[in-house]
Amino acid sequence: LRQRHVACLARSERGLGFSIAGGKGSTPYRAGDAGIFVSRIAEGGAAHRAGTLQVGDRVLSINGVDVTEARHDHAVSLLTAASPTIALLLEREAGGP
Rank of each mutant, 00 (worst) to 15 (best):
20 I>V: 10
30 R>E: 08
82 A>P: 14
66 D>K: 04
63 N>G: 07
61 S>V: 07
25 G>C: 07
68 T>M: 06
64 G>C: 05
85 T>C: 13
44 G>I: 04
18 F>Q: 00
42 A>F: 14
81 A>E: 12
82 A>H: 12
78 L>R: 03
67 V>W: 00
67 V>N: 00
51 G>Q: 10
30 R>M: 12
52 T>L: 11
51 G>V: 02
45 G>V: 05
90 L>H: 03
65 V>W: 06
39 S>G: 06
33 D>H: 11
97 P>D: 12
12 S>A: 11
94 A>F: 13
64 G>F: 03
85 T>F: 10
54 Q>T: 07
73 D>Y: 06
18 F>T: 01
22 G>S: 01
62 I>Y: 02
94 A>D: 14
26 S>F: 06
84 P>Q: 13
88 L>W: 01
90 L>G: 01
14 R>H: 13
70 A>L: 06
57 D>R: 01
56 G>W: 04
83 S>A: 14
54 Q>D: 05
87 A>C: 15
24 K>E: 12
58 R>H: 08
21 A>S: 14
89 L>H: 12
92 R>D: 00
14 R>K: 13
17 G>I: 00
88 L>C: 04
16 L>A: 07
62 I>Q: 02
70 A>I: 07
80 T>A: 14
41 I>R: 01
30 R>P: 04
32 G>I: 02
71 R>C: 11
15 G>K: 06
93 E>K: 10
10 A>Q: 15
93 E>R: 07
81 A>G: 15
63 N>C: 04
85 T>G: 07
4 R>N: 06
4 R>L: 07
67 V>Y: 02
25 G>A: 05
41 I>D: 03
66 D>S: 08
58 R>K: 15
61 S>T: 14
64 G>R: 04
60 L>W: 02
64 G>D: 10
66 D>A: 05
81 A>M: 11
94 A>S: 14
93 E>G: 09
77 S>G: 15
74 H>R: 13
33 D>V: 10
3 Q>H: 08
36 I>A: 01
57 D>C: 03
2 R>S: 06
56 G>H: 00
32 G>D: 08
14 R>E: 14
77 S>E: 14
78 L>E: 04
12 S>V: 09
66 D>H: 02
10 A>Y: 10
80 T>F: 09
74 H>A: 12
30 R>G: 07
63 N>Y: 03
14 R>Y: 10
26 S>A: 12
67 V>E: 00
87 A>S: 15
92 R>C: 02
40 R>N: 14
